[in-house]
């Protein structure tokens, strides 16, 4: 299916916003409050969540890939690519599955995605280090992900509420 110009524009815009949000959350390093590696707000997840509902899984994946590659490129840190890719892909995968469950609201989907994001990052850390030591951080990261997931869920809910009157959600 060929994307419409509107969709393409929206994809580009969302990618830019996701990148901006990733940058923004570095200005508020949550890891200062919780000094373990990998702790962050995951604001870019708001974009993934929005794209998933507004544009569908395929384009959400495209935005996510563009965000990860460009983010690593801008940061000049290709090592971080594996981490962000594994984290973001796990998050998207889980959110696609959860969004099919009609009973769940944005909050549940977002929290599940945040938890999956952390699992993916820990997996990347274990791959890089070649041992299971990073697993030690996972319980704390999961607990934190419930909070950050709830927070991004809240932000997304506000977003959708605000956009309800526009035609963005109708494809």
């Amino acid at each position: 299916m060929k994307p419409t110009t509107k969709q393409l524009t929206l994809c580009a815009l969302l990618t830019a916003m996701a990148l901006a949000l990733s940058y923004l959350e570095n200005l508020f390093p949550l890891s200062l409050a919780i000094p373990i590696p990998g702790v962050k707000l995951g604001l870019a997840n708001i974009v993934t969540l929005f794209a998933l509902y507004a544009l569908g899984p395929g384009q959400a994946l495209l935005i996510l890939l563009a965000r990860c590659f460009l983010g690593a490129l801008f940061a000049g840190n290709m090592n971080a690519l594996l981490f962000s890719l594994l984290g973001a892909l796990s998050a998207l995968g889980v959110m696609i599955l959860l969004s099919r469950l009609r009973g769940l609201s944005l909050y549940g989907v977002s929290a599940g995605g945040a938890a999956a994001h952390n699992c993916g990052q820990i997996a990347a850390a274990m791959l890089t280090l070649g041992n299971s030591a990073p697993l030690y951080y996972l319980p704390v990261l999961l607990a934190v992900s419930l909070l950050t997931g709830g927070l991004t869920g809240l932000a997304s809910a506000c977003l959708f509420r605000g956009l309800r009157s526009t035609n963005l959600m109708k494809g």
Binding site: Y53, G108, A111, P139, S145, F160
Partner: peptide, 30 residues
């Protein structure tokens, strides 16, 4: 382009289940 289901914007009881699952995983691991 099919209409996508509009997401639920208020927390539901099922969300609590997701939260419980993640929490259980965290506690179990710990």
């Amino acid at each position: 382009m099919p209409m996508r289901p509009s997401p639920k914007l208020r927390p539901t009881a099922w969300d609590a289940l997701v939260v419980l699952c993640v929490a259980a995983l965290a506690i179990g691991l710990a």
